[in-house]
Amino acid sequence: MNQTIEVSDLNVSYYGNQALKDVSFSLQTGNLIGIIGPNGAGKSTLIKAMLHLIPIESGTISINEQPVKNLRRNIAYVPQRSDIDWDFPITVKNTVLLGTYPNIKLFRRPTKADKEWALYCLEKVGMGNFANRQIAELSGGQQQRVFLARALAQKTDFLLLDEPFVGIDAASEEMMINILRSLRDEGKTVMVVNHDLSKVEAYFDELILLNHTLVATGPVHDVIRPEIMSKAYHTNLNMIQQMGVFS
């Protein structure tokens, strides 16, 4: 029995500007899915809308015929690094511990087991030695890994990451994509908003190509085709080629 993520006729506007128009797609779960498109194409808007973090004008989002609102605790979200107040007085360890909160009942505190689980997730992203640091003391890549650890701590079947690879070092990126792959191999669904076209082929199984409307969706090789890409990017193929898409 295959599970699917269904988005149909999704419309989202900000102050009268239409950010997403009639976006519909249906994707298999258990894949590593990239969301790509030019700047301002509505990539982040799409995943925020899918989580109902922003009001949607019309459309439905469901996973396996369940409205996504009912499944929120089964979805982990990793925000863009710029959305976080890095001066917040919180240590790395406690940041990851926040990932256990959705599964802790009201009025309850994290247990010892929760804390151990958080540390385990931290080890998994190779940040165990930084547990007691304040989050601003980390490099960009380390910060991103900590937030991935937090998502892992949520023990969800779905992970949504917003531009996780922006401004981070190669080693961190490598480590993160490996973790995302192993999650996929465990049968989880990972959706990643990605800006850098050079690595889409290597990273993702499926792609969603956006430019306010849905331009294309499907297996990577069906989407990364010059005639399709140029439709989204409104630019000549040379540019795209220079960006290293078609190797």
Partner: peptide
Amino acid sequence: YKELLISTFDETMAAAYG
């Protein structure tokens, strides 16, 4: 405290999980 902490630190994540 739990809810206040998480919504103060990362309101998006708090909203994302409901």
